[in-house]
């Protein structure tokens, strides 16, 4: 992490720490919550970036994992508050435990989806991941016990030992720590032997196989880790909104996470953060001016893909370094 990209990453980190605190001191609760939203979608995109950016696996189904995280948080809170049990198990409102279950469940589901999807490539991979996500989406819709199409409210935000999660700035703090932790983890992974293998699986599969490393296993593992991070974001997202619905799993959501990765800069560590900031701000402020903000987002995305392949990070920091 050297040169201009390092400075930009530092500036983004500083902004994530300082701006919400300033908003909090100014009493702008709405904007503190907006900052939480930025950080959570950034986290979801950090997850996807591992698969899409570093691994070259264009998953159009990451909303499934986002939704799994959301539903674990929602269903767990639902039962815990009503005092009922889930399949005979008592549930929890403790965030750390909810996160653990979210991440593990998403990991198991990603293992199954990945094991099948990763046998295909290119457009087929995109379509199969989309198909799996749609299956889970309709599964969520068809479950009246958990709100079906209407979704499931989380009446009381889940708790974290020793912290008051109702306090917007505290909740933001939890989200930002989760984001930083996943960014740090991604940096470690990409600098490791596994990261080197994933990079080569992306760039030259033949070279990797010829070196004696089976590309499939490397990809599948990265896909699972990627899904786990996105699921953690989903659990936080449900708690932010106090609500979980099938829309968390819709293909729109998958597209949104993908747009954030591409907008920020594919395969750049802090790209998803830059992308999430740009996306949520556009959505909020442009969306406040016109209902057709999507048109402008589309134009910006088109411009990014045509003229700035490195996304925002590429535009500001130049070509990625790999050492």
């Amino acid at each position: 992490m050297r040169g201009r990209e390092g400075w930009i990453n530092g500036a983004l980190a500083a902004a994530l720490l300082i701006v919400p605190l300033a908003l909090h001191l100014a009493g702008e609760v709405y904007y503190v919550n907006l900052a939480s939203r930025v950080v959570i979608v950034a986290l979801a995109a950090v997850g996807l970036n591992l698969a899409l950016g570093y691994g070259g696996m264009v998953s159009f189904g990451h909303a499934a994992f986002f939704g799994i995280g959301g539903y674990v948080a929602g269903i767990s809170a639902h039962h815990a508050i009503l005092g009922t049990s889930f399949l005979g198990l008592s549930t929890t409102t403790e965030m750390p435990l909810i996160w653990l279950i979210s991440v593990l469940l998403a990991g198991v589901v990603a293992l199954a989806i990945g094991a099948i999807s990763l046998r295909t490539k290119g457009v087929y991979f995109i379509m199969i991941t989309l198909a799996f996500a749609q299956m889970l989406y309709y599964f969520a819709i068809s479950f009246p016990a958990y709100g079906g199409e209407d979704g499931l409210p989380i009446y009381v935000r889940n708790t974290f030992p020793g912290l008051n999660t109702f306090d917007p700035i505290t909740f933001y703090g939890i989200c930002v720590v989760a984001l930083f932790a996943c960014l740090f983890l991604t940096a470690r992974i990409m600098g490791s032997r596994f990261g080197a293998a994933l990079d080569m699986a992306h760039l030259s599969e033949t070279r990797l196989a010829t070196a004696g490393i089976a590309p499939f296993n490397i990809r599948l593992t990265a896909f699972v880790i990627s899904a786990m991070m996105t699921a953690l974001a989903g659990a936080l997202f449900a708690d932010l909104n106090g609500f979980v619905s099938p829309s968390m799993m819709s293909w729109h959501r998958s597209g949104e996470i993908m747009v954030i990765v591409i907008l920020g800069g594919v395969g750049r560590l802090w790209g998803p953060v830059a992308g999430a900031i740009a996306f949520v701000l556009l959505e909020t402020f442009l969306g406040g001016l016109t209902e057709r903000w999507g048109l402008f987002l589309g134009l910006i995305l088109l411009g990014t893909v045509l003229f700035a392949r490195g996304g925002i990070m590429g535009l500001i920091a130049g070509k990625a370094r790999h050492d």
Binding site: R188, I189, G191, S192, R193, F194, G195, A196, A197, D199, M200, L203, S204, R207, L208, T210, A211, G212, I213, N217, I218, T221, H322, D323
Partner: peptide
Amino acid sequence: LAMDRTARQNVRIAAQARAGSSFRFWGQV
């Protein structure tokens, strides 16, 4: 060869395969 990577990085993949498992996530190459 991966065109965007250095000679060292290309060769290192083979060396790391020789040196054991690539399922190591923490130590930095």
